[in-house]
């Protein structure tokens, strides 16, 4: 099957319930905002392919499937992720405080070199704001993570946030490839297919997923 992209990045959205992770996902993947969905039912991940410096980068962005609600995200969710958007709601102090807990969770479960970014969402709701932009920036400095305030509703900065994260992952990956042999994106990350197309054996050690 012909490849339609140069890179495939698995990205995750993480943060408390109700901070707008799914809205951000829909804004970015569909350019839509639907105020009616309250919790994340039936949404697994979304795909959007973007162009970065002439390369086609396919972003596979995974939603939490509501498993963040009682802090029960599976360790499997973090496997193979290359970038994580940590999302809080600027109108919800608690969701901001919990960012630290989510970072701890990521450190425990995700790959050590995963790229992270903090998003302060719902910045259109200025009247209800509980967390100032400065506090967000300060937290980001503390953890040395990039930070941006977004509004999925007004389509503010969502696009640029994903481009920034993708660009950082790409830069890191290219640096790694230069340092070692060009092993390709996520060397050996493969999925097994159900339909048994005839393929020539390339190596006896293959890593695969069933598809």
């Amino acid at each position: 099957m012909a490849k339609t992209y140069d890179y495939l990045f698995k990205l995750l959205l993480i943060g408390d319930s109700g901070v707008g992770k799914t809205s951000i996902l829909f804004r970015f993947s569909e350019d839509a905002f639907n105020i009616s969905f309250i919790s994340t039912i039936g949404i697994d991940f979304k795909i959007r392919t973007i162009d970065l410096d002439g390369k086609k980068v396919k972003l596979q962005i995974w939603d939490t499937a509501g498993q963040e609600r009682f802090r029960t995200i599976t360790t499997a969710y973090y496997r193979g992720s290359m970038g994580i958007m940590l999302v809080y709601d600027v109108t919800n102090e608690k969701s901001f405080e919990n960012i630290k807990n989510w970072i701890r969770n990521i450190e425990e479960n995700a790959s050590a070199d995963v790229e992270k970014m903090i998003l302060g969402n719902k910045c259109d709701l200025e009247a209800k704001r509980q967390v100032s932009k400065e506090r967000g920036e300060q937290l980001a400095v503390e953890y040395q993570i990039k930070f941006i305030e977004t509004s999925a509703k007004d389509s503010l900065n969502v696009e640029s946030a994903f481009y920034t994260l993708a660009r950082d992952i790409k830069a890191k990956m290219e640096k790694k490839q230069e340092a070692s042999n060009p092993a390709g994106a996520r060397s050996g990350a493969h999925q097994i297919r159900a339909n048994e197309q005839q393929r020539k054996p390339t190596s006896w050690l293959s890593r695969c997923s069933l598809l």
């Binding site: 596979q60 393929r199 006896w204 293959s206 997923s209």
Partner: peptide
């Protein structure tokens, strides 16, 4: 979803 794929077939 299209993964880059070099699944071994024995």
């Amino acid at each position: 979803i299209v993964f880059e794929d070099d699944v071994t077939h024995g």
